[in-house]
Design a protein around this nucleic acid. Structure first.
Length: 377
DNA sequence: AATACGTGGAA
DNA sequence: TTTCCAAGTAT
């Protein structure tokens, strides 16, 4: 029997129902469910293969986990396939041009992930002879690898019994233990509770099973408790609580609106004038069309006077784009048939390569509004 | 602890 | 239409 985790506060403090789930029963039930209902993804091996001693490739697991941070599986799969085709091994990624990595990541969002992905690949190639560290602590020290990713790679690729806590797991655990504490303040409690049900055997399958359960059965809105392998042990379900109201979360802040102007210039050959953004911060390291500052101030300059150079700018309309912490209303201006004069603040991206450029979605929207055919491949 | 950091799909 | 949010990390 395992030592009970150090819970602070203990589960009874946050559970109106004093009953503690029979934690030892959870993992076997969940693993049996996973054997039958696991999902297949390009970065996974099947549980049958796993029980024959095979392990998923740590490079594949790491790459998928970084891509999956705050990102849906559906969005990730084509990117994962392209990255593996371009860079089959971590050493290949380490030797890649950073700009090529940014181009391949374009559209996936949270671009600091791509910058850190490259740094991490370099660290693994240079400091670890191309082998990922096989412990949670070793992984945690890599760029872009936080608590979750370190635990996930350690469990899935190296069979370590680490507590893998992502949004799915938080949801499952909050219901299983009827946790009244709110996120994100209760992160520590969720980690301890997850550790209390994580098995020594098949910890990687257990982690993936928790995530599959969370995304198919124990869903945010309409959980399908009748089909849940853990329903007999779930305090939320057994107590008749509103299961979908867990986990408790802190109230969200509202999104301010910012405004700006973007300038899409095209030359006689169809090339578009682009610039490179600063390496850090919003859309860091990505390409852009010239644009004004994005401001919430009513007296901010969001019109023609922010143009990068003089031209016959025509107003095309407005693009609305929602970022994590603000909404952007971008006034778009276009100019056509310009002479492709050499400038030191950017370059003319040829029409043929524009769709493959390192353009974040908001910039593609602006270009598409100005020249609807510009991004056609 | 609180905030910055993208995007697109589902209800 | 609006809201929520999906396998988080860095600072």
């Amino acid at each position: 029997m395992r030592t009970p985790p150090d819970l602070s506060p203990p589960p009874s403090a946050s559970c109106p129902n004093p009953t503690i789930p029979e934690t030892a029963a959870v993992a076997p039930l969940l693993l049996a469910w996973y054997d039958r209902h696991h999902r297949s993804f390009p970065w996974r091996i099947s549980p049958a293969e796993g029980q024959q001693g095979r392990r998923a490739d740590p490079y594949h697991v790491w790459l998928s986990e970084v891509m999956l941070q705050q990102t849906t599986v559906q969005a990730v799969i084509p990117y994962f396939q392209r990255f593996l085709a371009l860079w089959p091994r971590v050493e290949d990624l380490a030797e890649a041009e950073t700009d090529a990595v940014m181009k391949a990541w374009a559209g996936l969002g949270y671009y600091a992930r791509a910058r850190n992905l490259k740094k991490c690949a370099e660290a693994v190639a240079r400091d670890h002879a191309g082998r990922f560290p096989d412990t949670e602590d070793g992984l945690r020290a890599l760029p872009g690898v936080g608590d979750y990713t370190a635990a996930a790679v350690a469990a899935i690729a190296f069979d370590r019994p680490s507590a893998v806590v992502d949004g799915n797991v938080e949801r499952v655990v909050s219901r299983l233990f009827l946790v009244e504490d709110s996120l994100p303040a209760a992160k520590r409690l969720f980690r301890a509770l997850t550790a209390s049900i994580t098995p020594q055997q098949r910890p990687g399958d257990f982690a993936q099973a928790m995530m599959d359960l969370g995304s198919t059965i124990c869903t945010p809105r309409r959980p399908v408790c009748a089909l849940c392998p853990l329903n007999d042990h779930c305090l939320a379900f057994r107590s008749g609580a509103a299961v979908e109201s867990y986990p408790r979360k802190a109230a969200k802040k509202d999104k301010p609106v910012r405004k700006g102007a973007a300038f899409v210039a095209r030359d006689q050959a169809g090339a578009i004038f682009l610039r490179k953004r600063a390496e850090s911060g919003l859309l860091g390291g990505m390409s852009e069309v010239p644009n004004s500052a994005w401001t919430s101030r009513v007296d901010g300059e969001t019109g023609l006077s922010a143009a990068p150079f003089s031209a016959d700018w025509q107003a095309c309309g407005t693009v609305t784009h929602v970022f994590t912490h603000f909404e952007l209303q971008l006034s778009v201006y276009s100019a056509r048939d310009l002479a492709a004069l050499r400038r030191n603040d950017g370059w003319w991206e040829p029409a043929a390569s524009l769709s493959g450029a390192a353009l974040p979605t908001v910039m593609k929207k602006a270009i598409a509004l100005a020249f609807p055919d510009a991004l056609s491949p």
